[in-house]
Simulated scan of single mutants.
Amino acid sequence: MFVLNGFFIAGTIICALAVLLGLIATVIRRYPDDWALVATAGTELFLIVYAVAAGIRQVGGEMVLGEPWEFWGYLLTALIMPPIAFFWAVSDKSRWANTVLAVSGAITFVMLFRMEQIWHVGVIA
């Protein structure tokens, strides 16, 4: 059984929005539009809040049930993805830069899913 919490649900919605806007922008635009860029920035903002909350949860006594180094490794890698995609899109100015933004949102979701698995490893069946 996978534990659904508010962070996972919010992250899923934010990542899905980033993917959707990136794909729509790929289809109808030749260059990255503001909506796709803002969605990617929103993904990064969510990850920063998630990182702070994870730190507070650990300091408060709620421990990662899996390997902490693996959780924090995924989180640091996830934090790097949206800025790389954002700066790629700003500098590339082609239709395919929007695809990079969409893929970044999808990868961020997969990493968020994995981080939640690592955090709650004891309750996943």
Score class of each variant (00 low, 15 high):
A16P: 03
L20R: 02
N98Q: 07
I124R: 08
S91M: 05
S94H: 03
G61Q: 12
G11C: 09
W88H: 10
V64W: 03
R95S: 09
N98Y: 07
N5Q: 15
D33R: 01
V49A: 14
D34P: 00
I84C: 11
N5L: 13
K93F: 10
G55L: 15
V49M: 12
V3K: 15
E44F: 15
S91D: 01
P82W: 00
L47H: 06
S91T: 02
F7A: 06
L47P: 05
F71E: 02
T99P: 00
V52H: 13
P68Q: 10
V64H: 05
P83C: 11
T26M: 13
A25E: 05
M115W: 06
I124W: 10
K93T: 01
A78I: 11
A51R: 03
E67K: 06
A10P: 07
G6C: 14
R29D: 01
G66M: 14
M111P: 00
R29W: 04
T99Y: 08
Q58E: 15
I28S: 03
V38I: 12
F87S: 04
Q58S: 14
V121S: 12
W88A: 10
A97Q: 04
I48K: 08
V90F: 03
L4A: 08
W96A: 06
F7H: 03
W72R: 07
P83F: 10
I13M: 14
V49Y: 10
T108S: 06
V103T: 07
F113M: 08
L47T: 01
C15D: 01
G11N: 11
V121H: 04
P82L: 09
G42K: 00
I124H: 10
L75K: 15
A16L: 15
L76F: 15
A102R: 08
S104E: 06
F46R: 00
D92P: 03
I28F: 04
I13Q: 03
I107H: 00
Q58K: 12
G22F: 07
I24A: 07
L23S: 02
M115S: 09
V123I: 13
P32K: 00
G122V: 09
N5G: 14
T43K: 02
L23V: 11
A25R: 03
Q117P: 01
L4I: 10
P83K: 09
I13F: 15
F46T: 00
F86D: 05
R95G: 07
M63S: 08
V27R: 09
A89L: 06
I9C: 09
A85Y: 03
A10H: 07
V110T: 07
A39L: 04
V49G: 04
E116N: 15
F71V: 06
I24H: 10
I48S: 09
P82M: 07
M111G: 07
Y31P: 00
G61I: 15
G122M: 08
F46G: 02
A78M: 12
L21T: 13
I124K: 08
T43H: 02
S94E: 01
V27F: 10
T108K: 00
I24E: 02
L4N: 11
F7P: 02
G105I: 05
D33V: 08
Y31L: 05
N98I: 14
D92W: 03
V100M: 04
F113Y: 11
D34G: 02
L37N: 01
G61T: 12
V59A: 13
E44A: 08
V27S: 04
F71L: 13
V90Y: 01
L76E: 04
L47A: 06
M1N: 06
L101W: 05
W119D: 04
Q58F: 14
A125Y: 12
R57H: 07
G61D: 14
G105L: 06
